[in-house]
Write a protein that binds this DNA or RNA. Structure first.
Lengths: 207, 207, 207, 207
DNA sequence: TATGAATGAGGCTTCATTCAT
DNA sequence: TATGAATGAAGCCTCATTCAT
């Protein structure tokens, strides 16, 4: 993906417009170019100077946003010590997101989806070979950090762990949605349970 | 949802056409009425004798299919003894599905989605209150069967378990996708690992 | 037009359904066969046993209704003595109609229209040569009655009078619409003014 | 209504296309967008850049045309002296219109109609409060001109006169339709009779 | 480079009419 | 004779994309 620093202002405006609309609850598959460019404050034709079609705009915008989000999350996470604390922090972020706009959670969903977003995902899978699947990448770094570079488990185990951690986070999100009104105390309890579960699974796998 | 036995032939034709198209990789959000009715072998107008609009056709078709699938899976599962065997059987089915058309997996995704399918899901959530969310329902029954009615864990634990089991299945599906070409032996190994993990988690939670 | 006594029950049901729907404010040009037959309590196909198409149903229904209305009005009018009293009575009926559903007024409009109802009017003009324009016919009889058969004015004068009387009635209807809320006393005054005007014009023409 | 001078060329093309089609005998309620835009020489989608839907196109086109027609008629009429001459002139124009395309007469009908044109009329009635019902407005000006501003009759009388004059004109149009083939001499006679009748009524009312 | 007016393919939906029962 | 399920032509409208300015 292009370097953020070199991102042209028009491209950035388009990305941010899409993310904003998405955050406001818009369905990615019914988003229109008119909405996007209008929100971005540019002409409709201009968008086509930077992207070949609508799908590319949306897919790249998603990618850009997830990248931003993951980078930020990873950086913040570094301030925490140990997997447990890091996961606690992550779940806090997930929780806030869901409470606010459910946006990142829906993004994860969109990116996990291998068929609904059609062409958009094809493009993502293409770029994936270049840069890695940004979300998985972050989790992978998390795992490596925890193990230390000298004690790296086999690639298969890493792959398995990535999926397990991701599915646990999704799991937490789903539970939150189900019990959206539950009290702070209960939520604290649940968060701890989740992190315990995640850590237990992690240490069992890496032995 | 309507009784399957009383399903009119035209409705059934429409449901099956949608599922077939979906199975062939069609994107639910870009499916056209023309495609559906053509595949169903009926006139375009006929579809509107049975459904009020396109979204209703698709949502009910999905629901119908998941219902059919879950009923069938649950029934078959009863022939197996114990959670481990049942999960092994389930993972086999998941595996076959993914190898074939990825269809049920995508259905789970579609049904889990809380925003992309828009109105369709609103309708599903409405019926959910009447019949239970078919997929969760099946998992719930599975849990109850395993515990025995006299040893039922608290509702919170059941809720947590449902999510954990579902997330493990999704987890398995994702791993398979990543390693789609891996050999039978490895796949057998992975399946066992997953089932072990599921059972371990299960018994830890219900104590 | 067919003799009312020989009108088949199905035909009558269709006529009455259309008139009822029209009375409820339906737009004749957007009325559907489904609505009509449903209201008439018969099958959709049955309507096509009696009429060649939808337009024929509507045109004949209008014709039938106007015929009924005019016959009834003319009969009732005979109980009154002299043009002035007859016109007073007629305006009372017009007034009631407008207050209730505006239906007959709209029918007059529909029948006067030479282009909006398209084919329907072509059919009416066709029958017109056989039976006379039912509304004009009634006014013509009114004029003849008033003059006495021995003192009949020239055909041209009759023609002119017909139009003048009709235009005065329409005029009264329009005024009522404009002043829909005016008090009974004012309305009585207006009615008298109108009748005076009609009579004055009438006697001036026939000399 | 928008200022004629500022009317965009596309809007004007659409208005003129509709009026032309109407003049050719098309039924307003069955006019299609495809016909309109094709006649206007623009793309179908373009029409929707300027109007929110088909009904708006037609209603505004009618309004535009009546406005143009009334403005022109009133201006020409000013060259004539006195009510009688003005009415003679007007009837001449009406006559020509009916002989040519019957267009304005049908427009009057369409604008008088309070139910058939549905939404279109709602829009017209809305603008009516801003600009006055263009046709009535013209007649009103005619009346004021004739009385002189210092001798204005009561508003009620003006209202009554407007309706009377309009209904007489309609009356004349109807007579022409009935006797479309009558000779020039007869028509001249009738026109005079009508104008006499109109003037007599006028002076009786204003006293 | 930036624009947005113009386009037209294509989608959804309605409904008059037919025809097998 | 009566029916109403089935049909598909046809209409309205949207919106991704282009291109002249």
């Amino acid at each position: 993906m292009e370097n953020t620093k070199e991102l042209s202002p028009k491209k950035k405006a388009i990305y941010e417009a899409i993310i904003e609309l998405f955050g406001q609850g818009a369905d990615l598959s019914t988003l229109t170019v008119a909405e996007i460019t209008s929100k971005a404050g540019i002409g409709k034709g201009t968008a086509y100077e930077y992207f070949s079609d609508k799908d590319e705009m949306i897919a790249k915008a998603i990618f850009y946003h997830v990248e931003q989000f993951c980078n930020g999350l990873y950086e913040e996470m570094q301030k925490e010590n140990g997997l447990y604390e890091k996961m606690m922090f992550t779940l806090h972020v997930v929780e806030k997101e869901i409470a606010e706009s459910n946006c990142v959670f829906r993004l994860i969903h969109a990116m996990t989806d291998n068929s609904l977003l059609g062409k958009k995902m094809q493009m993502l899978e293409e770029t994936q070979t270049q840069h890695g699947f940004i979300l998985r990448d972050m989790v992978r770094k998390l795992i490596i950090d925890e193990c230390g570079e000298d004690k790296m488990p086999s690639e298969e185990k890493v792959e398995y762990l990535i999926i397990c951690l991701l599915s646990k986070m999704v799991c937490y999100g789903m539970l939150l949605k189900k019990t959206i009104l539950m009290q702070d105390k209960q939520r604290d309890e649940l968060r701890k349970t989740m992190c315990d579960g995640i850590c237990k699974e992690f240490y069992e796998v890496i032995g």
